[in-house]
Amino acid sequence: MIIDESTLSLIYLVVLMAFLGVELIGHVPSVLHTPLMSGANAIHGVVIIGSIIVMGIADDTLSMVLGFLAVVLGTLNVVGGFVVTNRMLEMFRRKP
């Protein structure tokens, strides 16, 4: 089986990130589970980068339409995700 170098480094990255994700979540109080899920939800909105790339190299109408839709949906994920998380967390602010 032949794996080229760049694929191999991607695989390294995936494995290390998987462990990092586990470590990051390990000791979170249950109070913060909902905001954390919501924040993570916003972060996977990074999929928008892919949609920007497909939109940017699209050259026929159907691809343009689908690409446009993909960017809109990705943006919804990013913006909605961060704003909702922020609104939730605003409520944890202690009054002086």
């Binding site: 990130m17 994700g21 979170v28 899920m37 993570a40 996977h44 990074v46 999929v47 980068i49």
Partner: peptide, 28 residues
């Protein structure tokens, strides 16, 4: 799914963001 996009374009930020959420989300 976002990380799969990262593989498609050799895009590190998609890969890292996607896998982080994938693993953190699973643990959560």
């Amino acid at each position: 799914a976002a990380a799969c996009g990262g593989f498609l374009y050799d895009n590190m930020v998609m890969l890292i963001g996607g896998i982080l959420v994938g693993s953190a989300g699973t643990i959560l």
